[in-house]
Design a binder for these strands. Structure first.
Length: 662
RNA sequence: GCCGCCUUAGCUCAGUCGGCUAGAGCGACGCACUCGUAAUGCGUAGGUCGUCGGUUCGAUUCCGACAGGCGGCUCCA
């Protein structure tokens, strides 16, 4: 939080309003820099018509600041609610908070909103904005007064009753220990609308410079599946028209990078209906990327002391009883098939099978840490509504490892894993991370193990996370049933975060499987097991990489690395020889022998985002050279063949994630 | 799983207020062109309009169920 500094502090004199002080200081009241609220010494935002009882130093907050935008967005939500109730008088109000980049408001309406309703509502909102209504705060004297006024708003009534429990940024209706209402007053001084709300708000709707309704969707009341669904309208609002346009450009950019779209365009993968929802197939070009990822990750694991293993896709159900998974995850496992008196499940996790490998013979403390790794195919019956491209599928390969260590070795192993995970992500071009620590919810009975075990395990993860120096975010209640979890969240090229790697401390499964090792003193001890997935799933990570690179993969991952483009047909053989030499060096090189004109071939290669185009015409053939055109449009003409080959090989083998460029 | 919207050629999309041979661009294929840095021209093939059922003289069009997709919600070991 920013500290109030003397230079931008403002004093609101007792008995006068913040607006008076803002005006006296000559601060702007219009445009993106307009002062819309002030921050009091306790850090609380106050409306401009707030009048403190004593002289108070405040910090003016402009519309285009993070706080100012939140106020703008929440105020716009009120305008939306007013427009909805004007258009659909029977609509009951839910909640309407600001969110990242915008706001939403939930309504109980008889019929869900139709796409063209949004346009009508937007128009109505424009009218309200233009009419310059002011927001006026009013405190309820008592609970009963509030209830009487809100008798026709059942959801608001509910909020009034539970106001003590809901005091977070999502629920702006109540909080701060008092019940307040905001009335919208038109230019004639008449009250035209109002809403239970803790505020604060813009001084006037006129200060809403740019907004847009984005979509409507259903949402469960107070986020609980058991509750009725309300109809939610999402909108966005900005301090200027240009900011709104920039936001829309940002959305368009994200859409351009969508891996589902690029997956089709670049012929990487598809989701045949005939196979089933959430079950991708990789085409040859997607297969190349997948294989490169797997080969590299496998090699790095072996370098880091992991042993590559293999396990089947199905198992008798007893295994998942032993591991303890079945009671918790039966709903998300594919139903079993019954064969020869046993129920076989498709596996949804690999750890039980790795435990059996560990247990296959006696283990010595000298073997620890014992690290098992594989690309384990798992199947999870995700609810139909959550399936999304490659990032949420029903069948996928985890780059899964389990480290079996002594309790003393656990911190060192976790540190080792975290560093390894981060270095792998960096190798693939992701380098902006933060960590999340998922702990158990002591209230829930989902989690097994003693308080002490949880405490130790959580502390170990927390210490390593803190030591890493990365930002650490708490995720209470997000742990696995068998132990706490640390996850790496990575930011992609356009700033979106993806949960990638997880490291989990497990003190339950070793006991359930009776895992042990013989210690130096001859006693039998139980190891600790540390689960770790580096990318989470290969499929998901591939999807993230497609979006991160917008399909323009680094040369080492590109499905086709070099394409030869002859100027005339008769330059094709020359380029084919060049390509053959590259292929001998392990480079994926092709020549475009189609009947297209060379300009068209360049366009095609450009659309396929191929890193190197090698062009040759008469000049190059007679000079023994090729001319490079890179993906970014830059060029290097008439490069001698040997040099050209060395250049491509160097760029590919370096695994650089940049370029290539001239 | 819940709510809403959607499904027409390999891809992107027109179209049919229920009626005779359902269109376009890109892609594919063929022919001509042989060209120095993002689309040469002409031609050909390709669709039981997601599936099943209903209404109707007649359904790609209207209704229902199912499947798949999209956007949210919930969930995400």
């Amino acid at each position: 939080m920013r500290r109030t500094t003397v230079s931008d502090a403002l004093v609101v004199a007792a008995g006068t309003t913040a607006a008076d002080a803002v005006a006296a200081a000559g601060l702007p009241s219009n445009g993106p820099k307009a002062i819309v609220v002030v921050k009091d010494p306790s850090g609380r935002l106050r409306d401009l018509d707030w009048a403190p009882a004593a002289d108070t130093e405040v910090e003016p907050v402009a519309l285009d600041t993070p706080d100012g935008l939140n106020v703008l967005r929440h105020s716009t939500a009120h305008v939306l609610a007013q427009a909805v109730q004007a258009t659909f008088p029977e609509a009951k109000l839910g909640i309407g908070p600001f969110i990242t980049d915008g706001f939403y408001y939930d309504f109980d309406v008889e019929k869900p909103f139709q796409p063209d309703d949004l346009g009508k509502l937007e128009k109505k909102m424009q009218e309200i904005v233009k009419s310059g209504q002011t927001f006026r705060r009013r405190e309820y004297a008592s609970l009963d007064e509030a209830k009487a006024e809100l008798a026709h708003e059942p959801y608001k009534l509910e909020l009034v009753d539970i106001k003590g429990d809901v005091d977070d940024s999502e629920v702006m209706e109540v909080g701060g220990g008092e019940l307040t209402h905001y009335d919208n007053i038109d230019r004639k001084g008449e009250r035209v609308w109002g809403d239970l709300c803790r505020g604060p708000h813009l001084p006037s709707t006129r200060l809403i410079p740019a907004f847009k309704l984005m979509r409507s969707a259903a949402a469960y009341w107070r986020g609980n599946e058991k509750n009725p669904q309300l109809q939610r309208i999402y909108g966005t609002a900005w301090a200027s028209r240009d900011d709104l346009k920039a936001y829309q450009t940002r959305l368009a950019e994200a859409e351009r990078r969508d891996h589902r779209k690029l997956g089709t365009e670049l012929d990487l993968f598809s989701f045949p209906d005939e196979i089933g929802s959430g079950l991708p197939v990789f085409h040859p070009k997607g297969g190349v990327i997948k294989r490169e990822m797997e080969d590299y990750v496998r090699a790095r694991h072996i370098e880091e002391g992991f042993q590559y293993v293999g396990t089947p896709h199905i198992s008798k159900e007893g295994l998942f009883h032993t591991s303890g998974h079945l009671p918790y995850y039966k709903d998300t496992m594919f139903p079993p098939s019954h064969m020869e008196g046993a129920d076989y499940y498709l596996k949804a996790m690999n750890c039980p099978m790795h435990n059996l490998i560990y247990r296959s013979r006696g283990r010595s403390y000298r073997e620890l840490p014992l690290r098992l790794f594989e690309f384990g195919s798992v199947y999870r019956y995700e609810k139909s509504g959550v399936i999304h491209g490659l990032t949420r599928v029903r069948g996928f390969a985890q780059d899964d490892s389990h480290s079996y260590v002594t309790a003393e070795q656990a911190p060192g192993e976790i540190k080792h894993l975290l560093n390894f995970v981060l270095s792998l992500l960096r190798d693939f071009g992701l380098d902006d991370f933060y960590l999340e620590l998922s702990t158990r919810d002591p209230e829930s009975d989902k989690f097994i193990g003693s308080d002490e075990q949880w405490e130790i395990a959580t502390k170990v993860l927390e210490d390593v996370a803190t030591e890493s120096g990365l930002e650490l975010v708490a995720d209470p209640g997000g742990a696995a049933f068998y132990g706490p979890k640390m996850s790496v969240q990575a930011k992609d090229a356009i700033g979106r975060t993806w949960q990638m790697s997880t490291i989990q401390y497990d003190f339950n499964q070793p006991a359930r499987f009776g895992l042990e090792y013989q210690a130096a003193d001859g006693t039998r001890q139980e190891p600790v097991m540390i689960h770790s997935a580096k990318f989470g799933s290969i499929e998901r990570f591939l999807g993230v990489l497609v979006e991160h690179y917008a399909g323009a993969f680094p040369a080492w991952l590109a499905p086709v690395q070099v394409v030869g483009i002859p100027i005339r047909d008769d330059h094709g053989d020359y380029l084919q020889e060049f390509a053959d030499k590259l292929r001998k060096q392990g480079i994926r090189a092709e020549v475009d022998h189609s009947t297209d004109r060379m300009q068209k071939k360049i366009r095609t290669a450009q659309q396929q985002k191929i890193p190197f185009m090698a062009i040759a015409g008469d000049d190059d053939v007679s000079g023994g050279t090729v001319s490079f055109r890179y993906r970014d449009g830059s060029q290097r003409n008439n490069v001698p063949l040997d040099e050209a080959i060395a250049h491509v090989v160097e760029v590919v083998r370096s695994r650089t994630n940049a370029g290539p460029t001239a």
